[in-house]
């Protein structure tokens, strides 16, 4: 009990445990799991990352001439790294950086645009399949 009281008084003279966050940056450990980065030069367009992603934060949009476009939603991403482990070209095409994801504000419209994109991507695949099937027939 006496030691507790002396400790309580000695704590008055000590620095606080907390840090002044936005002014002093927080020290992150090595290999911190941050945002997912992509390089389309090395991508083989296998769509494996899209399939394994638990929150569907990666979507490939298909165009009629055959090429695809990579879309990533950093606000939906849970930084689990499953896409990195599934990728056959880890490190070149897809990698995880140590940069922390920022919170979104309403101006970013993280959900509305993304849901429209999700529907468009689904539709674009179906259209592409239909075109391919039509070509085979002819």
């Amino acid at each position: 009990m006496i030691s507790a009281i002396t400790k309580a008084f000695s704590n008055l003279l000590k620095k606080p445990y907390t840090c002044n966050y936005p002014v002093t940056p927080v020290i992150k450990p090595k290999n911190y799991r941050g945002l997912i980065k992509f390089n389309d030069e090395y991508c083989i367009w296998c769509d494996k990352c899209e399939k394994v992603c638990p929150p569907n934060a990666i979507i490939f949009k298909q165009f009629e001439d055959g090429h695809k476009v990579y879309n990533y939603n950093p606000y939906l991403c849970i930084y689990c790294g499953d896409c990195i482990r599934a990728c056959p070209k880890t490190g070149d095409a897809l990698w995880q950086c140590e940069e922390k994801g920022l919170p979104s504000i309403s101006k970013d419209a993280p959900n509305d645009d993304w849901f429209i994109l999700e529907k468009e991507a689904k539709q674009s695949r179906e259209n592409y399949k239909a075109i391919k099937a039509a070509k085979k027939k002819s």
Binding site: Y17, P29, N31, R33, I78, Y79, C80, G81
Partner: peptide, 30 residues
Amino acid sequence: ADREIIMDIQEAISGNRVQFDFVCIGGVNR
């Protein structure tokens, strides 16, 4: 405040403070 020590250890091992995503089917990720 003392609990932060453990949180820091977990962050160093798994790469995140709270959501570890450390185990996977077949073993561990890191």
